[in-house]
Amino acid sequence: MGGITVEGVARAFGDVHAVRDASFSVEPGHVAGLIGPNGAGKTTLLLMLATLLAPDAGTIRIAGHDPVAEPRAVRERIGWMPDALGSWPSLTVRDALATSARMYGLTRDAASARAAELIDLVDLAPLADRPTRVLSRGQKQRLSLARALVHDPDVLLLDEPASGLDPAARASLRELVRRLAGEGKTLLVSSHVLAELEEMADTAVYLAGGVTAAADAVARAGRSARQWRVRSLDPLRLDEALTAAGFGAVARIDNLGAVVPLSSEADAAQLLAHLVGVGVPVSSFAPAVGDLEHVFLDLNRAGPPPAAPGSDAATPFGDSGPAAPGEARA
């Protein structure tokens, strides 16, 4: 069996409770988005899944193995793409990938074959023989993704994989992620760019203040009132029609049209029918924000346990950015 199962996991650094109570599971063949605001504990959670941090409490199973008790078994099966982009600065892209492959026990020949394959996959061929320190952030991000895939793992943990990527690279990342899921791999992708996740994730884990949202809370948030954007060829008529229909007090009119809060999809269908019925030329009628964002904002509004205040003591996760490129190494 594959997949990720997390139950009641907690981890503190001194008196900073980065993760308080995380429970979720991801089945093989699925892409789960790990969603949460900055400092929600996403990276800490991923470090625990990647066998780098031991949880204080709770259990983790990756493809049926415990990262604390059997780290080796887990490491064989996971590919981890960290948020901090480290690379051996003086090695070439090809050497760096081949070295990583050899760290997973591949022979020299198999490792260089695999490196060549991955260079094509992440589209770094023109840079394959340049030292990694010359890579831009987006290129490093792709190298990092290639390294996570180097031993063809069953479970992929991607921490902010899309940050720094240009639109074309984002599109190919999306495609790659969906294809890997199609091959039966389990993917957990963290991001706070929700539109990005919306397109690749088929399930979501919401994390705020170190606590994952319970399934019923997510379902409730999904059903809760949300904003719908309505556009019309004739904004004045739209405004009048909304006021006549009793939305005058709650609708927000701006130069793009109107934003109307509606409590359910049924209400939305009804309003649309009404507007069309009274002759408003509606050109667009859609949720103002994506599903993930809606749930995320709603859960945040519902007041999760307050995020622990930041502290300078032990910060194993950081949004402080990557190490400066080209650091001096003797």
């Binding site: 780098l52 480290g86 690379s87 990583s100 990557p322």
Partner: peptide
């Protein structure tokens, strides 16, 4: 560790 290459080595079988 500062260069960010320690952890990526430690998640391998090394």
């Amino acid at each position: 560790r500062d260069a960010g290459t320690l952890a990526t080595t430690q998640v391998t079988l090394i």
